[in-house]
Amino acid sequence: MASSFVAGERLVRALGPGGELEPEKLPQKLRAELEAAVGKKHKGGDSPRGPQRLVSFRLIRDLHQHLRERGSTLYLHELLEGSEIHLPEVVKPPRDSRHGGTLGELGKQVRSVKALVITIFNFIVTVAAAFVCTYLGSQYIFTEMASRVLAAVIVASVVGLAELYVMVRAMEGELGEL
């Protein structure tokens, strides 16, 4: 994130002797900090202009506040003419070579999904088989279809709940081993 900018020639001239900021009577501390920042040359890594004069946003805010308090006719945007925001180079962290085996990770994920699909399929088949078995077997007890369907739904629900209980206990056991 940008926190400074490269001072342009207009700001450097304004801070110099006889510059535009001289009649503004800047506080000694602010003037010293600005002159130190403008006078200090930082190495510009890939800049074709060579060394850069980096001035922090805090100093410019302080300068702007002072100019505003004094009711100056000198505007900050005029002083910053020719200046550029300094964006520091983003350093990318080196790649971690431990996680190079993406196919191994993919294999684990495929096995996990495969186990989940088989479990869901097994659940559906078990509940459907319980329903069909009860429906067909109840024809010897009940003569009405509504009674047979109700009995089959009750038995399928009980079998489904039992199956869910067993799945939860198995998953709880697997998570406990991690």
Rank of each mutant, 00 (worst) to 15 (best):
L87D: 03
A2V: 12
E89A: 03
S147C: 02
A151D: 12
H66Q: 13
V159W: 12
H66I: 07
R68L: 14
G8N: 11
A170W: 11
G18F: 03
A37K: 00
G50P: 00
Q52C: 06
P93N: 03
K92W: 04
P93V: 06
L74P: 03
T73N: 13
A7Q: 11
S47Q: 06
M171P: 00
H64W: 14
H86T: 01
V38L: 01
R58V: 15
A32I: 02
I124Q: 10
A152W: 10
F121Y: 02
K41Y: 00
V6H: 05
V168R: 15
E9S: 15
M171L: 05
I118P: 02
K41D: 01
T126P: 10
V159Y: 11
G100T: 11
M167W: 12
Q28G: 11
E78W: 02
G137F: 07
K40E: 01
V125W: 09
K43E: 01
V149S: 05
Y165V: 14
Y135V: 10
R98W: 02
Q65N: 15
V90W: 04
E35W: 01
R31P: 03
T126N: 14
R95Q: 10
V90M: 04
V155L: 15
M1N: 08
H77P: 00
G104K: 07
S112N: 06
F121Q: 02
F123V: 02
L80S: 01
L63G: 08
R70H: 12
D62M: 08
T143C: 05
V149C: 06
G173M: 08
L175A: 10
V149D: 06
G107F: 03
S72A: 08
S72T: 05
L21D: 06
K40D: 00
E81P: 00
S56P: 08
P27V: 04
V12K: 15
S147G: 07
L15S: 09
F131G: 10
L26F: 01
G82V: 00
R53E: 05
A146M: 09
R95G: 09
R58N: 13
E84W: 02
L150Q: 11
V110I: 15
R148G: 11
L59N: 05
V55Q: 03
A36H: 08
L87N: 04
T134D: 11
M171S: 01
G8S: 11
L136A: 09
V132E: 13
E163F: 15
S157L: 15
S83Y: 01
K29P: 05
E105K: 12
E84D: 06
R148W: 10
L76V: 07
L136E: 14
I60F: 13
V117Q: 11
L21Q: 03
Q109G: 09
H99C: 04
A152D: 10
G100W: 09
K114R: 12
L54A: 07
A7N: 12
H99E: 07
T143M: 08
V127T: 14
L87Q: 08
V90T: 08
G173I: 04
G173D: 13
M1Y: 06
G160N: 10
P23H: 08
I60P: 05
R111A: 13
L136T: 10
M167V: 13
N122Y: 06
G18A: 03
N122E: 12
K25G: 11
E144S: 14
Q52N: 07
